[in-house]
Design a protein around this nucleic acid. Sequence first.
DNA 1: GTGTAGGCTCGTAGCCGACAA
DNA 2: TTGTCGGCTACGAGCCTACAC
Lengths: 293, 293
Amino acid sequence: QVAASMQKDVEAHVPSYPNLPSKLICLLHSVTLQADPDTDEVYAQMTLQPVNTYAKEALQLSELALRQARPQMEFFCKTLTASDTSTHGGFSVPRRAAEKIFPSLDFSLQPPCQELQARDIHDNVWTFRHIFRGQPKRHLLTTGWSLFVSGKKLFAGDSVIFVRDEKQQLLLGIRRANRQPTNISSSVLSSDSMHIGVLAAAAHASANTSPFTIFYNPRASPTEFVIPFAKYQKAMYSNQISLGMRFRMMCETEELGTRRYVKLPIQTLTSEAPSSADIFNTFQLHGYDNWNK
Amino acid sequence: QVAASMQKDVEAHVPSYPNLPSKLICLLHSVTLQADPDTDEVYAQMTLQPVNTYAKEALQLSELALRQARPQMEFFCKTLTASDTSTHGGFSVPRRAAEKIFPSLDFSLQPPCQELQARDIHDNVWTFRHIFRGQPKRHLLTTGWSLFVSGKKLFAGDSVIFVRDEKQQLLLGIRRANRQPTNISSSVLSSDSMHIGVLAAAAHASANTSPFTIFYNPRASPTEFVIPFAKYQKAMYSNQISLGMRFRMMCETEELGTRRYVKLPIQTLTSEAPSSADIFNTFQLHGYDNWNK
DNA sequence: GTGTAGGCTCGTAGCCGACAA
DNA sequence: TTGTCGGCTACGAGCCTACAC
């Protein structure tokens, strides 16, 4: 992973860790799903502890987590048009989406309209005027919409997701289009140093079987580097793949509408209802997008 | 430095490097002065190679670099007022500063005005309308000024620097007031991993006397962690400071109008005229600020 | 059913001198 | 000399319908 995302020609500067194996079987101590406060980019902070031996229970637990259904709630997702993001007007809500997700309007009003409140991944509340007007009639979000677009720095091609949770509250998330890397070396932070740091921490943890912490961003990685134990076992033993064997890897990273392989059993760790941060992290980690009708 | 800027309670995760000395004498292979494209925060990328022995020439070269005069050019610096940064108006230019730095106006015009172009640290050109009007008469920057303020995200208390270089071209820099840290953990980048990476890279380089690269931000550090060799020698031997001795360290980091101790001999490496990036990096690394009259 | 454009309105960015510190 | 304010103007954000695909 480090080699894949690192700039070339600095290999000479990377210390080598001969005792760091290419695959590290770890116990997952904790997962914290997070989102960048500025960009809403989602990522997971995980504390991993390398293990030398493991019981059969571990495999069963991992399989259980894989089968664990995530909460199914109603939502819709729309890719923003030029009109949706221009300063000229508001947001055109697909008709069936509005009827499915939004509270129903009082059609005795002329025109029918209401105030909508939706909570984002940081639990910030956004307020919109929801109106049904025009010829032909349509659902629109007007007042408040442009603040959301500019606040989230959305452009045509990005997507928004409206979710109605089990408490009938509206949640609101975004998913940016695949653009060229947002901010290259945005600060004094050296990604090279960080990559070396991950290696050093992993090597240290591997040698001492002590825990270490990583930040894992599934959208930034060209492919998965954190694999559920059950998936790993299945790939290794049921398909008889052995070290050095050539094979073709399915690459579905960033394809729209497909599931990701990472499955984080965060919901199994708590009996409380998931926060909106959990929901959107889960949705985005699993790559929901472009839901229509 | 790592310990100083790291969050507490993660010490257990930091691998220890028993062979990494507390002071590392290094040969400076290259210095690249840089600025964050988003915030204009300046920093230096340095390639350092630990050395075990050094000739007396090294000390002389370091002293030479310390004495090396940086290019002296005319400039003025003003701390922005509430009026300067409000959307209500433009920028009030101190009279003597305008007369010293800006091209002189054609006073036959009523009112006297001209278009000014100034280049920032990224070589972006900013255009302003420079006008001399009001009662009493004053120099103002009007059209174009608000774009600059919002583009650079300037607030009252921040400073701007106008420089007239040897080619009579205008250069334009900023220096932000000391505020609470701008963006805490702005991204997926883990500063912990980065710090561990710096340690790992330094330890590896120290053991192999091989080069390593660091990013050094003088404004982020509570005190200096990169010291010119000559300064270090002087402190160690002429003042008879020995290891473990207690002493009081002059803390002038971030004081206004004082020089910093870091002296980067970048101008000695090239015979070309310095770029505006060099000039502003140099100015800001040396802490010029609040120049008046 | 939904994207875009034209028309209209109103809030505010931004230019000006007055005035005071 | 220069910071802030009230007055004025003009541009564009944003709500509306019309129309096309």
